[in-house]
């Protein structure tokens, strides 16, 4: 696979767009999946994943063919996702802890509506539930959890994709896992 991809990359470097279309074909599902899990929205995921491929094409000359192409591509994709998440971040996150309290989040600050959030959550389909819980994670934990559990990537590769030390990746996975544990404790 890597040999084929490197051959295609060489063709792309000569400016051949048809060769790039083949690369997109090979990686579209992987990249789209990661974007979708991180953004939780099909249209946004498609937009960002396509944008990631366009950026990869434009910057293909900076790719070191001795390295893994998927790692490089994931890096472009996750960076774009994180940027997108931060841009649309509201001023208040319901999940954010209220300063000066422990374990009290913004949910506790709003008056209960007819139906408690948990009850609504219980009615969700399992698939939607997974996506919902992922989207409630803070973005720095979201990326590692998506890459670790949904794409089954080794920790070393995650550290390369996110350009952070292995120790940081581990810490974030631990915290992300704890956060999910708390979110799921009512299941």
């Amino acid at each position: 696979m890597d040999a084929l991809v490197n051959k295609r990359i060489k063709e792309v470097l000569k400016g051949d767009q048809n060769a790039f279309a083949e690369i997109v074909e090979l990686y579209q599902d992987k990249l789209y999946r990661v974007c979708f899990r991180m953004l939780g929205n099909k249209h946004e995921a498609e937009d960002i994943a396509q944008e990631a491929f366009v950026r990869a094409f434009i910057n293909i000359h900076t790719f070191d063919t001795k390295r893994k192409f998927s790692t490089w591509l994931y890096r472009i994709g996750t960076n774009l996702c994180i940027d997108r998440i931060r841009k649309k971040k509201p001023d208040y996150y319901l999940d954010a802890e209220v300063s000066g309290t422990e374990g009290l989040n913004m949910y506790s600050q709003i008056a209960a509506s007819e139906e408690l959030p948990e009850d609504q959550v219980m009615k969700m389909e399992m698939q939607d539930r997974v996506q919902y819980e992922i989207s409630r994670l803070p973005d720095k934990y979201r990326a590692v959890i998506v890459l670790k559990y949904m794409e089954d990537l080794p920790l070393q590769e995650i550290s390369e994709i996110l350009e952070m030390p292995l120790g940081t990746v581990k810490t974030r996975i631990h915290r992300g896992r704890e956060a999910l544990r708390k979110q799921l404790s009512n299941m």
């Binding site: 767009q17 790039f20 279309a21 997109v24 074909e25 579209q28 599902d29 990249l31 789209y32 999946r33 979708f36 899990r37 099909k42 498609e46 994943a49 396509q50 944008e51 491929f53 366009v54 094409f57 434009i58 399992m126 698939q127 997974v130 996506q131 819980e133 992922i134 959890i145 559990y149 949904m150 896992r177 704890e178 999910l180 544990r181 799921l184 404790s185 299941m187």
Partner: peptide, 30 residues
């Protein structure tokens, strides 16, 4: 509970890119 978290997240079905994804990319290339 922690093991359940892993199983829960992994239970997410594998989705694939929508139709016309490649064409969408090539249309956006310079």
């Amino acid at each position: 509970e922690l093991s359940k978290v892993a199983a829960f997240v992994q239970s997410a079905s594998h989705i694939s890119a929508p139709n016309g994804f490649v064409e969408g990319v090539t249309a956006r290339l310079p």
